[in-house]
Amino acid sequence: MAEPLLKFEEVSFAWAEASPLLQCMTLQIAPNECVALVGRNGAGKSTLFQLACGLLRPASGKVWLGSLDTAQARPPQLARQVSLMFQEAERQICRERVDAEVGFAPSLAGLSAEEVEQRVSMALSLTGLTGLAARHPMDLNAGERRMLSLASLIAQDTPLILLDEPTRDFDAPLLARFEAWMNMAREQGRAVLFISHDLDFIARHASRVLHLKAGRIEANGPAGQVLLHPDLQETGRMAAPTLPALCRSLNLPECRQLDAFAALWRSHVAAFPDGKP
């Protein structure tokens, strides 16, 4: 079994004189995993992210990035292990050209100019931003700026990737491109941990879901099970607005893609003599 890329060992965290935000949390994220982090506002999701990339240090317990103890590691060491997409892409942009922004992290890592150029070219191609390389990032629309933040992560080339509400601002074509990248990242052996309130997106991509409540892991398991948790939505036959929930309500085999559901539904309807279920 592969060693985890992220590991929390009984981690707790609290601001001074405040209630604990995370309490004795233990979790592991392995290569090839795509794990969703869900829960209501204030559950501890953002705090977990900041601990995972070393922006915060635990009050107790340990956070490991591979064999690296985040409390002891220096920022350049952390930057080689984990990358983070902010919920608001504008907050992590610091250069005046798109290509310079994408090459910022590789340049700080001390890579050669040739290697930086190769990474920038690849990242811009994957995100569809090649034609915008010379533009100022703030001249891009919201979806393009989010793609720019993704291109920067691709160029950073880390085994663990953290995404905070990654699908916001995307139209259908950009979302399709983003989802293609997510599939490729897993095929490359990377681990993706993302925060999202888009239950349909989670159902399509998450191999596992962690549901946080009051700084603790309330549920940990397959999306089809965890998304039914009553704290996330009302209980009932259609407990979650996802294709798996729809399939369950119709007594159909579970599927997660629209085209697969359409074919399944056509086959189901065709089985009735009058064409009506």
Rank of each mutant, 00 (worst) to 15 (best):
F13R: 07
Q92L: 06
P277Q: 10
T47N: 07
P31H: 05
M238A: 14
A172T: 09
A262C: 12
D99Q: 14
C247Q: 12
D164G: 05
L124M: 10
R237F: 11
T47K: 05
L48P: 00
P106K: 04
E218S: 07
W181H: 13
P253E: 05
P137H: 01
I93N: 12
L162I: 11
F104W: 13
P166I: 02
Q23D: 11
T158R: 00
W64I: 06
Q257K: 15
V82R: 05
D198P: 04
T167Y: 14
Q23C: 10
C94W: 08
T130P: 00
F104C: 14
A245M: 10
L140K: 06
S107T: 15
M184R: 13
T167R: 12
L193H: 03
W64K: 08
K276P: 06
E218M: 03
V102G: 11
Q87R: 12
R57Y: 14
A59I: 07
E10C: 03
A59E: 10
L48R: 00
F13D: 09
D164H: 06
N183L: 15
A271Y: 09
Q28W: 00
P4N: 04
M184A: 15
V38H: 02
L232E: 05
A155W: 00
D139L: 08
D171S: 04
F261A: 11
M1I: 04
A43L: 00
V63A: 11
A105S: 15
R177I: 14
R190M: 13
A30P: 00
C94L: 15
I29G: 03
R237C: 09
L55C: 00
